[in-house]
Each structure stands twice: as C-alpha cells, then as structure tokens.
Design a protein around this nucleic acid. Structure first.
Lengths: 251, 251
DNA sequence: GCTCTACCTTGATATGAATCAAAGCTATAA
DNA sequence: TTATAGCTTTGATTCATATCAAGGTAGAGC
C-alpha cells in the first residue's frame, strides 16, 4: 500500500497532488479540538493570519531538536509525532505522542530553547504558530489567551497522569492505559475507538511507558490470549473495552 | 524547639506576633524568583493589588483538594507544600514539592478543577493570585503574560524531567536527583546548598520518586556509608556533591 | 520478485526493588 | 514526665521486569 503524502484519514479532501497549504482554520475539520476552539469567527481569521502552513514533514524527520531555539508551537493537522529526550547514556525517553488537533512544542517556552525533540512517526501536516505572534494576539483576544493557558495546563495534567502511571502501575496497566488514551483521542476525531493502526513502534511504546520492547510485546501477546485485543502487528482491535478498562484500573 | 508561626527562614523580619499580611511584592525578598520577575515597578504595584495574602496554612492542612473548583494559583512565600493525586486504590502519587518563590496550582487551569491536592508540609505563608484577575492583568501587561507562560512551561519541563527519572533511573539515581534539585533550589534562595532540613517524610519522597519507604531509607543509609551524605533523620548534609552528581548521572 | 534491515516475538535467566516482618526512634499529647 | 502514634531503619524473602539470546516477520529499496 502506498502512503499518500498528506491524507492519513484526517483530511479527507486532500490528495498527494493538492498540497492544500491554504486550508484555513475556519474550514479545518479539527477546529473544534484545536486552537480556534472557543474563538469567534472574526477572531479565527486573525489567528489564521499568523499561522504558517508548510509542506508536510516526512516520516522520521525532525520538527525540532532538543536545544534548538524556540520560535513556534505547532498544531498537528494530520499524521503523528513523538516528543522525546535523549538521556546522557543515549537512551530515549518519549514524553508524548501528538495526534491531529493537538499542540506540540510548548516545552520550549520556558527557556526559549526546546527541552525535547519532536519527530514525525508518519508523514504529517503541521500548522506553525510563531510564538511571538501568538503572544501579541493573546493580549488582544482574552479568549485565545485563556485557551492557550488551558492547553498548557492540559499538557501539565497529562504529564502528571503519566508520572502516576510510571510509578504506580504494572506493565499491563501501562499498556492498557496507552491504548485507551489512543482510543479516546480517536473518538474525539470521529474515528473508530476500537480499531486503529498504531503509528508508533513497540520500541517507542516502551520508551514512553518505561518498559523494554520485550515486555511490551509480551503484554500484547498476553492481552491477545485473554481475548481483550486482537493484535496484528501495528493493527489493533479492542475486543473487550471494558476488560481493557479493568486492566488499566484508572479513572 | 517551638516552631514559629511564619518564620521558616525565608521571611526574616516576621515573627509569630506580626502576621505581616501586608508584605508587598515590591519588598518581598523572593520577587526575583517569583511572579514579579521581569516586571517594572509600576507593574509590580498593579500585581500587588490583585494578590491576596491570608493567614498561614498550618502543617498538614490542605490548600485545595483534587476536584475543588479552580479559582487561584498560589505563590509560596515561606514553608513547603506537596501536590499529590490519590489513585483509586488509595495510593498517593506526589507530583511535586513547592518551595518559596514557586507557584502551585497551575494544574487546575485546564478544567477549572484542581487535578491534584496541595497540602502544607510545614506551616506555610502563601500569596493567592485569583486567576481571572491574573488573566485580565496579563492582557494589559505582555511581560506578565510571557512570564506566566514561562512558568507553566517550566512546570511542563519539570514534569518531563520526573518522567524520565521514573522510567529510566535506579533508586539511587532518583534520590540523588531529588537531593540535588533541593540543593539547587536552596541556592537560588541564598540558603546553603549542602546543609538543609528535608521538609518531607521518607514516605513522601517514596511517593514522589516511585519507591517504597524502605527503599528510600536504604538509599540514604547506603549513601551515608559511602560518605556522600551525612543523614540525621531529616537533617541532610551533602559531603560530596560531585559524588552525588556522579550517582545522579543526569545533566 | 528478492534481499536486507529493522522490527517483533518468545524463551531462559538474573536482578533490583517490593513485600513482609519486626524493632528502634522521635515528636506530640496527656 | 510518661504514653502513644507515627516515622524510620534493617533484615529476609519474593516477584515483576530487565537482560541475554535467538529466531521469525514484514516492509523498503533494489
């Protein structure tokens, strides 16, 4: 199967031939999840004006690297990215996966330097939002300011959720929680909550959940044996979502 | 030894008798670390006007609880707090410790509901900053907006640091990293980087670092035996800070 | 279509930290 | 001052996951 350059299921109108860099927030199907949320339509136009849409980022290319100067945050339009840090002994800690409608790059604000790297897991389309413009606009549009505060706070609570997962939960619980998180995020984008293709490798999952590849693989096998999942490489079907919630044991 | 009601070493001019609720940001000795950082003096006065200073929070009392409506963020003036979440099986995950000059409560912004609880580890003085006022002021003062964005981003990078610690580091490395973090934060407040009293219990340390009390205690004993630390209950002296950095192995 | 490489799975063994157990210590309250 | 409850330490044992090892699979590029 050949991978279309932009269309990964989130931008139904696009094809490989028509790089639609001109999609506007006003007609983007993600605008109810993304930054424009809660903005009036004239405000959305102003936001549109500061957003830069560039050509898609190919799989395994970097959006930015740890230590790069911070300039912009990015909204994911299609595709998936991972954010990660490399420890000094060369191991990789994945700090988050970013799906369409989500904002990546907010860790760079504190020092004007990216504290982590961001890499495309598949070909991805992005909206670049220069941060100084966003700041300027935020002073003019209180609801944009508020929404951006909320997005940052959401990143904080997500990180704290992961902290709890890593320090209190077993391998099975961690994997179950990740699958449920992906399921929920798919549902928000009107995709199937029970069938999807994982955009990340087992290694990435391990590096996110603090587990080795082998352990991740064993958990998948175990859940398949328990008829909770059907696993075919990266293709996942959740057969028993209540069972999976039972395994995850998290509200 | 009787504990004075306010003075914990950070507000030298205060005593138990003179609850100085009238300390202004302009003459607070923490203003170079705290929110007023980077504000002009007339701007600081405006910030002053929205800040509410109330009576000290006694040890083990809550500032807010998970699920409470979010109204304000709080600057710590003296004392220490812990933020924590309780998992549904009753275990506690400490998500952070907050020292003077630091801001607690930003996790509540995303949902207008606190995602964690905050509790005083010792009697603590706080400055309450009602969030709607802060938002209003931020639209008028771009440098305040920027600074608050930076504080939130710093919380994100701190959480990501903890994520890496929990998923990649051994018990010894985790404890060493926490001690170095406390040491650095003390130094910023012009306190000793090598001698201090831990405001939190071993249980709290364990619940922060994803370890049991027993393991935390064993790590302290081991480090004492290696002449890296001198430990007398909560009183810590770092004897070999380079050795400690060696144990922590983190940049 | 074939090869090569990167990814995934499964098994055997080792190990760091959890758990279980008990005693010592500290600080608050009576 | 003594009682008391909570905190801390230390030891013995268990267990979940890492590590080591090897074979299997699928997709990208030729």
């Amino acid at each position: 199967m050949s991978i279309p350059i932009i269309n990964t299921g989130d931008s139904p109108g696009l094809t490989a031939c028509t790089h639609d860099y001109q999609v506007k927030c006003g007609n983007c199907r993600l605008n109810s999840l993304c930054l424009p949320l809660a903005l009036e339509s004239e405000d959305i136009e102003q936001l549109d004006n500061i957003i830069q849409r560039s050509k898609p980022l190919q799989k395994s290319n970097h959006l930015y690297r740890e230590g790069d100067e911070f300039q912009s945050v990015f909204a994911v339009r299609s595709g998936t990215l991972k954010a990660y840090k490399t420890t000094d002994d060369g191991r990789e800690q994945v700090t988050g996966f970013y799906f369409p409608g989500e904002i990546v790059g907010m860790d760079g604000i504190s020092n004007n330097t990216h504290a982590s790297s961001a890499k495309a897991l598949e070909t991805s389309a992005l909206c670049e939002i220069p941060f100084t413009s966003l700041e300027r606009l935020s002073t003019l549009m209180p609801s944009l300011q508020r929404h951006f505060f909320q997005l940052m706070s959401r990143e904080i609570t997500a990180d704290q959720q992961l902290i709890t997962l890593l320090s209190k939960n077993s391998a099975d619980e961690r994997v179950a929680a990740l699958l449920l998180s992906i399921s929920t995020r798919n549902a928000r984008r009107k995709l199937s909550a029970t069938q999807f293709r994982l955009p990340m490798s087992r290694v990435d999952i391990g590096n996110y959940l603090g587990l080795t590849v082998e352990t991740v693989s064993r958990v998948f096998s175990r859940m398949q044996k328990m008829d909770v999942l059907h696993v075919d490489n990266k293709e996942i079907e959740i057969l028993d979502i209540e069972g999976l919630r039972g395994v995850a044991e998290i509200g």
